[in-house]
Design a protein around this nucleic acid. Structure first.
Lengths: 190, 190, 190, 190
DNA sequence: AATGAATGAGGTTTCATTCAT
DNA sequence: TATGAATGAAACCTCATTCAT
């Protein structure tokens, strides 16, 4: 007999897709079960309940995004270069994982009171990469940004531009969006 | 007898609050009715259904935000000054209407498929102010930004920073956030 | 100012139409009010409630049908002729008042527990014409039918044939249906 | 553990009773569930919605009535005998299943626009037995009836007489009603 | 007498979760 | 471990009826 991919992973994969397409409330446990090819009851063996499944799905996605970005910047030295690369990496990830990103937009930003702690942690994990770069850049004299707000603002910029593309169903042009954002940060208005 | 505020307005006010606190799906029509001090059936006199109420609430808020920002920039000439003022005005509005802003974050960004048209329109109405300023600034030689993406990025920056504050329940310091954003746009990294 | 038709009559007229088209439960008081050109509250001035309005409407219709049939047979002497004429008259009335007849089918036959007394009375008023003819015919030696059941059976025959036409949207051919029914009663199978 | 009767059958049985007593609109899904001894949600596992349940209930009853009548006439040869037997069988079935018959009266005759197709089919299935007998009888020279209208008239006669008994809460005397109907068809008025 | 805005009881239906197999 | 039939709380929405004008 062929060794099957573990059920838990299959469930998460299926859930990302459906949550991303329809949002938390419009998605039913039955749909997820069917998409994962398991019984409804099985979901409750691997996850405590719908909220738990949801937050695990979120977790796994953000983790992957963070890994993806960290990989791309790990060999760079200069904070401005790191910042540029981190922005580009995010945009690339968005392009390749539109599904998940829409999902993250929907649910991380539009956070639910009862998942607050969970979501704050995730938001943090995601923003912290940028925060560290800025922090390092400030120390080395490259930037004059404050840490917390600026990181949030930069992340907001990337997501704002990305969401704008998604919303208007334009083609998602990584390079163009990248240029536009870099211009805002690195070019002075007169 | 005292002339009461019109029912429709009272309902919208109550709905903003509850939607903002709990999101679309967690909010029940019963709650809104109770908060507005009217009967459940009354909601259905003034609004076709829950979705309709929701989108009217959204509409009225965005309209007000747009008015608020436009008022503050109408006497300014220089595009950079306009951009700064528009950013500050948004932050001020956010501070004074935290409820509505969280609501808008939740639902405009995390847009729902079935309200897409509605939300695109609103998103547009809101972003277009920044877009016009940038466009004018480009023509006059102040900026070198592209129109669509950059406006979305700038708006994302403001909202990202604001949401960050809300998320972490820090005090919402308009001036500090304003400085941080302006620094990103107007100060060059080295 | 022109003397308007009394409101009460206008309401009944409107109600027959709507009840006939949609049945008791699918018809709303608002619809009736609008069709009658009066305010909703006005219905409650002239009728105690929806049930009361309904039974008055039924009453007025059955009354008219009974009058219609009685008129046509009053000059006839022979019970068989009377019976034939009464059958034909009913069919004619059905053809001219399909609206009301469907309504009567729906509601008289499918009687509601809470309107039972009302409906029995009406059913009676309608069947009694046939019952009297049969009774007279028996006495004079024309028929050998029992009174109650036979009248009900004859009425059922007429309505059954009529409803059959309505159901299958065939043209309602009075003469043909009339022939078919008369054949059953007046022609012997071998 | 004792093998229980299948849930679906139990639901249909319960639904016939309640629908018969109170009609479609006055019957609630909650009542049916309670009467069937199942949860409200279970109804929606076996039936798409209230309309679906209703039409399935109707279907199952008409099917049974048709089977009942067919069984009784299958060994007879002469069309007049068949017709008599079919009439008697219907009356017998009515006596034994008053519940269902009242239900069928209510809803088949007083048909609802949205169930029209369903009801036409059922009406048909029921009337066709009589239609076939008449048709055969015409061919063999026993009757001189037209097919469609006459079948509908005969069925109407049976139902009319039966309903009359139910309406007036008289004892339902199969033999007496049978005699009365047969007299109308087989005895010539003078 | 006439109106229609307001009400809220009560209906249908969905769906997260349980549990016997 | 795995399943899915069964459950019932809770949501949205309608509409007969009331009552202040």
């Amino acid at each position: 007999m062929v060794t099957q991919k573990p059920k838990k992973a299959r469930i998460i994969e299926a859930a990302v897709d459906i949550f991303a397409q329809k949002g938390f409330h419009e998605t039913t446990m039955k749909e997820i079960a069917r998409a994962a090819g398991v019984g409804k009851g099985t979901l409750y063996i691997h996850f405590k309940n719908k909220d738990d499944l949801f937050s695990k799905v979120l977790d796994s996605g953000i983790e992957e995004l963070a890994r993806f970005v960290k990989n791309r910047i790990q060999d760079l030295e200069s904070p401005p270069e790191k910042l540029k690369k981190a922005i580009k990496a995010q945009l690339q990830y968005f392009k390749e994982n539109e599904q998940f990103c829409v999902f993250a937009f929907r649910e991380v930003w539009a956070y639910r009171e009862d998942l607050k702690d969970q979501i704050e942690k995730l938001h943090n994990k995601h923003t912290v990469i940028i925060k560290d770069i800025i922090s390092e850049g400030n120390k080395k004299g490259h930037f004059k940004m404050s840490n917390g707000n600026s990181a949030a603002a930069v992340v907001g910029m990337v997501w704002g531009a990305a969401l704008n593309s998604f919303l208007f169903k334009e083609e998602f042009k990584v390079d163009k969006i990248y240029e536009d954002i870099v211009t805002i940060i690195f070019e002075n208005p007169v």
